[in-house]
Design a protein around this nucleic acid. Structure first.
Lengths: 216, 216
DNA sequence: CTGATGAGTTACAACTTCTAACGAACGCAA
DNA sequence: TTGCGTTCGTTAGAAGTTGTAACTCATCAG
């Protein structure tokens, strides 16, 4: 969302402003109808200009969506970094994640949802993903090994490309992966509405999983 | 996939056959390009007939996709029931789930992936979902409470609409939910390619989560 | 054999993304 | 201030899409 509005020529300022407004409208559409329903034409009409004008700002629908994905990743990374900067432990990180997800479920799904078979994220996006994992690893490294000194942790000791320069011990790596996959499991099913009508309280399930992750 | 080809009039036989072929082509398209890229026109062309002909068989794109979702749910329910019938424990159920998911990742995402904001699954689909959970509950009820005799399990004791007539004790309910959410967490991230390039072996993470679910 | 039912057709409307060509506005520089 | 080039927005149009309407023709039942 943070379009660079730094010192620039008037034309570049205008350009950035229009790009930002396009993305904002796009987010609105995505939030209400999902990413697959995003229409460049509809955005243009909303902004009072004709369809092809948008192609001055984005090469096409795909580039716009990629840009939104990038922003979504950055938004989560920023949320994590902010939490971490104010001394967040894994529990606080979990609640930051949950808050971020509930804030805009479709944004969450843009990052962690159903992938388009052919699509490959650009390198800078995967770099942001690494930053997110690094923040998580920091928090996990602050805990004793506990129940995560597992055989799989031993496997991770020799297969830690994703934690390349990170000093976290194997158990922390396993805990971080469990944190990620378990909370994603609860969150994605909750946001997708798979718990509706089951009767229990989804936040309590989230809390129970978090408890299990933090305690042992 | 199992279109009823029972005793019918010739016209109904033909109709069922064509419907089945449409769905088959649809599955191919979905597997290679995702559900959002499904095109009725393309299917018609593949089958050697003109676009609007398909509307004799499906009211529209949405109805076709809903039908595919229904089939996907049924397929998973059948897989679970077959596994359960041959005396599967939770571990065997987990491997059945994993096999089913890897068999056609887009089919998995059709069931557990990103939802369309407005969409509400028809009642018979939620009924199949309940059947799946019931099979899972059976397997979980066969295990001692273990670590799943939790505060959240107590909450479930009073909020078990989803396990209405099922005799499973609270700890089994909690275990079933953990089974579902944790394995879905690992599977969905794996199928979406979020583990690629991280270095570790996704099946081992799945196994580790399963181990944690079965042991305690 | 006849007549209703249903399948497939073409034609069309209303969308979509996206390209091409044009005009007009804008900002910079002489 | 006077150009002049860059960039923006326009319209026109191609090639798709979903979906409706009307028509033809085969098929099946009585």
């Amino acid at each position: 969302m943070a379009e660079k509005t730094g010192t620039k020529t008037p034309r570049e300022r205008y350009r950035s402003q229009v790009r930002a407004e396009i993305k904002e409208r796009a987010w609105e559409q995505i939030a209400t109808a999902g990413a697959s329903a995003l229409s460049l034409n509809a955005i243009a009409k909303q902004m009072g200009m004709s369809g092809p004008a948008l192609y001055r700002y984005f090469a096409g629908r795909d580039e716009l969506i990629t840009e939104l994905i990038r922003d979504a990743y950055r938004s989560l990374a920023d949320t994590f970094r902010a939490a971490s900067a104010s001394g967040a432990d894994v529990a606080a990180l979990a609640h930051a994640l949950r808050g971020w997800a509930l804030d805009d479920p479709q944004r969450y799904f843009l990052v962690y949802g159903t992938p388009v078979p052919g699509y490959h994220a650009p390198d800078d996006v995967t770099a942001i993903a690494s930053e997110i994992m690094a923040t998580l690893l920091d928090a996990c490294a602050a805990l004793p090994p506990g129940d995560f000194a597992t055989p799989f942790a031993t496997h991770l000791e020799g297969h830690r490309q994703w934690a390349d320069g990170h000093p976290a011990p194997p158990a922390a790596l396993h805990r971080a992966l469990a944190f990620w996959t378990r909370l994603h499991g609860v969150l994605s099913l909750e946001l997708a509405g798979h718990f509706t009508g089951m009767g229990f309280d989804p936040p309590l399930l989230f809390a129970a999983e978090l408890e299990d992750l933090s305690a042992h």
